[in-house]
């Protein structure tokens, strides 16, 4: 008993250290004949979120498929991912991948981050999720046209809720108003965007009928739409989604807007062509593997694999477009 009494605290320390160790040093088995022996995956967000799940799914599949000798995941949280971005921009180990996506594109601008995505080496886009525009079930708006016409007419009387300011939801709201024909200079005066820290919180405002419309990822609102609490007006991808088969895409509804919340990986800016090739090959093989496809199925992620020059072009376009919209909204000058 004596040991037990004084031993309780040390047991706690050992446990905590062991757990902390698990999260950062999940090294796999010994060496293999893979081109990359040790891969380090940096997740620029805390455990549990979308980026983290992507990073950990990559880690597991890359190791299981023998595409890398071992892979570790490190969480570097903060400032919409830009703390992790700064970390990778200065990384010296070429075998490093940073999980990132559209959210980071916006965060770089709103946070006026010193580190920019252009300072990294793009590797691939992996998954995407469509956005959905919803209204409360009792709302008078039946179509996306109704909603946009009312904003055109009554401006800020119409409030739209969604995730953080300058995030994907906010950017889509700005793009919609622009596509509806409102002059860019006037979008800041018409859009009354009520930002919450996440889609879940904005849901409460929608269900309580305290705001007029909401924009967020499909996974945040789909359940409520199926339950009849919310009505989906449109989705933001190129094709309709399985979860909401009756909801038209924005393109079908006559608005030239396609925006998906995509996730991908980039490498340090300093790597040479050979090192880039090795990383791209590993990630391409991963994306094509049955195991990865099974993961996508299980997590309900859409496959959006894009690598090489196509991804470079896509990323450049994406950054330029986001910058324009953020300026229109009035978030940055």
């Amino acid at each position: 008993m004596r040991i037990m009494r004084t031993g309780a605290a040390p047991v706690g320390i050992v446990l905590a250290l062991a757990l902390a160790g698990c999260s950062s040093l999940e090294a796999g088995g010994g060496g293999s004949d893979a081109a990359i022996d040790e891969l380090s995956i940096v997740v620029p967000a805390g455990p549990g979120g979308g980026w983290d799940q992507t990073g950990r799914a990559m880690q597991a599949n890359l190791q299981d498929e023998g595409l890398v000798g071992s892979a570790t995941v490190t969480n570097v949280d903060g400032a919409g991912g830009t703390v992790g971005l700064a970390n990778i921009a200065n990384a010296s180990d070429p075998n490093t991948l940073l999980v990132m996506g559209l959210v980071m594109v916006g965060a770089v601008e709103t946070n006026q981050s010193q580190a920019r995505i252009e300072h990294t080496t793009p590797i691939a886009r992996l998954t995407e999720e469509q956005e959905v525009i919803v209204v409360p079930a009792e709302s008078p708006y039946e179509t996306i046209d109704d909603l946009l016409a009312d904003i055109e007419k009554n401006g800020k009387d119409v409030s739209i809720t969604g995730g953080s300011a300058g995030g994907t939801d906010h950017i889509l709201a700005g793009m919609l108003l622009k596509a509806a024909g409102m002059p860019p200079s006037n979008i800041g005066n018409k859009l009354n965007y009520i930002a919450y820290s996440g889609g879940g919180e904005s849901l409460a405002a929608l269900l309580g009928n305290n705001v007029n419309a909401g924009i967020s990822g499909i996974s945040e609102y789909a359940e409520q739409v199926q339950a009849g609490e919310l009505r989906a007006l449109a989705v933001s991808g190129e094709e309709r989604v399985d979860a909401l088969p009756d909801t038209p895409t924005l393109t079908e509804a006559g608005y030239d807007v396609v925006l998906t919340n995509w996730r991908g990986v980039v490498a340090p800016g300093s790597i040479d062509d050979e090192e880039r090739e090795a990383l791209t090959t590993a990630v391409t093989k991963l994306a094509e593997s049955d195991a990865w496809q099974a993961t996508l199925e299980e997590k309900d992620w859409d496959d959006a694999f894009l690598a090489g020059e196509e991804f470079d072009t896509y990323l450049d376009g994406n950054i330029a477009e986001s910058l324009t919209v953020l300026k229109d909204i009035g978030l940055i000058r």
Binding site: G78, A79, A86, N111, A165, A195, L331
Partner: peptide
């Protein structure tokens, strides 16, 4: 939260 602007972070990303 509402505007995405940083306040009193003195350019330190960890304070964002």
């Amino acid at each position: 939260t509402l505007t995405g602007q940083q306040r009193f972070t003195f350019g330190v990303p960890n304070l964002a």
